[in-house]
């Protein structure tokens, strides 16, 4: 068995393979280059883009300027609140729904579940205008709720249900016989068992909420309620040529998902590979 595997691994060296490795490496460099440039300019004290060594300033002045003078602090705070709220809400609501669909004898649940899945095909622009009207009517513009509540979607419930199948019914029945109540069973048995799915869902919700742009742009128009991408979008249109500060803002926006990616790379990639993810 092992020797067979080696037969695929070890093929005679060929110049074509070497060329392929070089091309893949080149593509990876092209992927990183804009981000390296972004970080480099964010540490540059310059109004032109010709970076010279004498313009490099290894301090956080541009970051300080973006956060304190250009509202990035407020935006950062808003983004963190919205992301935290979204992750909590989506995790709880999706896990509850998945448990109800998978483990409870609700009549007509499969039809409802198919209905949920069908909503994944709806493009965001189609529901944008009615949602704008509804949130306006409800007086929820310029609130965190307006950004958090619409984050619940069929994808999370679908993902949780995939993992809920693996929770053994015998375990739940045994716990019930032992006198373990409904809520306690859900919290102390089911949730720990589906923890990997909860982590994956948290990553997806984090990214979706952190990068969400069009909806926050139209619904939270007051400057003290803006989130990071919206503040980012107002920056360079203000006719500033302070590229260092703009790039510091972009780096800040990039930093949080990047740290998450470094630590939870496996979950990121597995979640996407699971397929059917909303692009």
């Amino acid at each position: 068995m092992k020797s067979k595997k080696n037969s695929i691994k070890k093929q005679p060296f060929s110049p074509w393979v070497a060329l392929g490795v070089v091309l893949v490496t080149l593509f990876a460099v092209l992927c990183l280059l804009p981000l390296i440039y972004m970080i480099a300019v964010s540490f540059t004290d310059s109004e032109t883009l010709y970076i010279k060594f004498k313009d490099l300033r290894p301090d956080l002045y541009n970051y300080w300027y973006a956060i304190v003078k250009r509202d990035f602090g407020t935006a950062l705070k808003n983004s963190i609140i919205v992301v935290t709220g979204s992750c909590l809400l989506v995790d709880i609501v999706s896990a509850m729904a998945a448990y109800g669909f998978e483990k409870k004898p609700v009549p007509g649940k499969e039809a409802l579940f198919q209905g949920y899945l069908a909503t994944m095909m709806i493009p965001g622009q189609v529901i944008l205008i009615p949602m704008f009207v509804m949130i306006n009517r409800a007086g929820l513009t310029n609130t965190y709720s307006a950004l958090i509540l619409p984050m619940v979607g069929a994808f999370g419930i679908f993902l949780m249900r995939q993992f809920m199948v693996a929770v053994p019914n015998e375990l739940l029945e045994a716990a019930e016989i032992d006198g373990c109540g409904e809520v306690r069973r859900f919290v102390t048995i089911v949730l720990p068992l589906v923890q990997p799915a909860l982590i994956t869902l948290t990553i997806f919700t984090f990214n979706a909420a952190w990068n969400n742009f069009l909806w926050p742009l139209i619904i939270n128009t007051r400057s003290e309620m803006r989130v990071l991408p919206v503040t980012m979008s107002t920056l360079s249109s203000n006719s500033t040529t302070n590229y260092g500060m703009v790039m510091a803002g972009a780096t800040l926006t990039f930093l949080f998902p990047f740290v998450l990616y470094v630590f939870l790379q496996k979950q990121f990639v597995e979640g996407i590979a699971l397929g059917g993810v909303k692009g």
Binding site: A28, C31, L35, Y37, P229, V230, S233, L235, P257, Y261
Partner: peptide, 16 residues
């Protein structure tokens, strides 16, 4: 490395 651009927000990408 090739996956990293995926996590950059569209607005930050556009800015850069």
């Amino acid at each position: 490395v090739i996956f990293i651009p995926v996590i950059v927000s569209l607005i930050a990408s556009a800015t850069v």
